[in-house]
C-alpha cells in the first residue's frame, strides 16, 4: 500500500509535465484541428531557453530567499515568452500558408518543423544530455511514510495553476471568447469581425508558452535535458490530450495526470518499466476505438 501511494506521488508529478504539454496540443487542435507535432520539441526548447537564461543570470545551484524568487520568475517568464514567439513564428510560416490546403499537408509540415527544431537544438547544445542546475533547495516532507519533494509539489501546482488561469482566460475574457468563436466556426467568426489570423496566432502563443513553462519545470525536475526528449514527451502528451478529449482543457489536464499515473503504477508489476510504454499507447488505441471523443470530450456536431 505504501508503495502504491508513493508511486501515486511520482505519477502525479510526471503527469503534471504531460498535462502542461497536453494543454498546448489540445488548444491548437481545438482551434484549427491540427495535431501540432512540433509541440513536444517546443517543450524541450523551453528547457534549453531556461538554461540559457539561467546562464545569463549567472545562476548555478541552490538559490535562497529573494534571488530565488526573482531569478526563477525571470527564467520562467523568459522561457514562456521565447517559446510563445517560436510558436507564433511556426504558425505563421508552416501552418498559415496551408490553412486551406488538405488536412494532410499541415500535418506533414508539422512533422517537418519538429525535425527542424530537434536539429537546431542538437546544433545549439550538442547531441548529448545537458545538465540543468538545481536552482532551489529540494526539501522533502514525509506524510505517513510517503515522501513528497518540493519539486514534485512544484510540478503539480504549476500544472493546476496554469490550467485554471487558462480556463479563466478562455471563458472570461474577450480574447478567450474570440478563440472559442474561431474554434466553433472560423468563417462565421470572421464575418462577426473577429481577426481570425490574430486569434489563431494568439492560441499558438499561449500554447507554446505553456510548453515553455513545462520545459522549465522538467529541467528543474530532472536536472538534465536532451534535445530529443520532446519526441517521447510529445507523444505521451498527445496521448493524454486524446485520452481527456482533444480540444478540452480540463480533459488535457486529466489525461496528463492519468498517463503519468499509468506509467508510474506500471512499476508495481514485475518488469513493469519495460511495459509502461506499451500500456500507455494501448490506452491511446483503446480510447480511439471505444471513445474517440475522449473522457471529457463531447461528440461535436458534424461540421459542414
Amino acid at each position: 500500500m505504501h508503495n502504491v501511494l508513493q508511486q501515486l506521488v511520482n505519477g502525479l508529478s510526471l503527469g503534471g509535465i504531460y498535462a502542461l504539454i497536453a494543454l498546448g496540443y489540445t488548444m491548437v487542435y481545438g482551434i484549427i484541428e491540427l495535431i501540432n507535432f512540433a509541440h513536444g520539441d517546443v517543450y524541450t526548447l523551453g528547457t534549453f531557453f531556461s538554461l540559457a537564461i539561467l546562464g545569463l543570470l549567472g545562476v548555478s545551484n541552490q538559490l535562497h530567499g529573494t534571488p530565488l524568487v526573482i531569478d526563477v520568475a525571470i527564467t520562467v517568464i523568459g522561457a514562456m515568452i521565447l517559446c510563445g514567439l517560436v510558436g507564433v513564428v511556426i504558425e505563421r510560416f508552416a501552418y498559415r500558408p496551408l490553412r486551406n490546403a488538405p488536412r494532410l499537408a499541415p500535418l506533414i509540415t508539422a512533422i517537418g518543423v519538429s525535425f527542424i527544431l530537434e536539429n537546431v537544438m542538437q546544433l545549439w547544445r550538442g547531441p548529448s544530455p545537458v545538465p540543468f542546475p538545481q536552482v532551489f533547495p529540494n526539501p522533502a516532507w514525509v506524510v505517513g511514510g510517503i515522501e513528497i519533494q518540493a519539486k514534485q509539489m512544484m510540478v503539480i501546482l504549476f500544472a493546476i495553476v496554469m490550467m485554471v488561469a487558462l480556463q479563466l482566460f478562455i471563458y472570461n475574457t474577450k480574447l478567450g471568447k474570440a478563440m472559442r468563436a474561431t474554434a466553433q466556426d472560423r468563417d462565421a467568426a470572421q464575418l462577426m469581425g473577429i481577426n481570425v489570423n490574430a486569434t489563431i496566432a494568439l492560441t499558438f502563443l499561449i500554447g507554446s508558452a505553456l510548453a515553455g513553462a513545462a520545459g522549465f519545470v522538467s529541467g528543474v525536475y530532472y536536472q538534465s535535458t536532451w534535445f530529443f526528449n520532446g519526441f517521447n514527451a510529445g507523444l505521451k502528451a498527445f496521448t493524454a490530450a486524446v485520452l481527456g478529449g482533444i480540444g478540452n482543457l480540463a480533459g488535457a489536464m486529466l489525461g496528463g495526470f492519468l498517463i503519468g499515473l499509468i506509467e508510474a503504477l506500471a512499476n508495481l508489476f514485475p518488469n513493469g518499466n519495460q511495459w509502461s510504454n506499451v500500456v500507455v499507447f494501448s490506452v491511446l488505441v483503446l480510447v480511439l476505438i471505444f471513445r474517440p471523443s475522449g473522457l471529457l470530450g463531447e461528440s461535436l456536431p458534424e461540421k459542414v
Binding site: N3, Q7, N10, L14, Y222, W226, N232, E263, A266, Q274
Partner: peptide, 22 residues
C-alpha cells in the same frame, strides 16, 4: 532482489527507482 529493463530514450526513472528503493 529483481531485474528490470529500461526503455530507449527513457527520461523518467523515478517510479522505477522508487520500486527499487522499497
Amino acid at each position: 532482489l529483481g531485474h528490470d529493463h529500461i526503455t530507449k530514450n527513457q527520461q523518467d526513472f523515478k517510479a522505477l527507482l522508487t520500486k527499487i528503493a522499497a
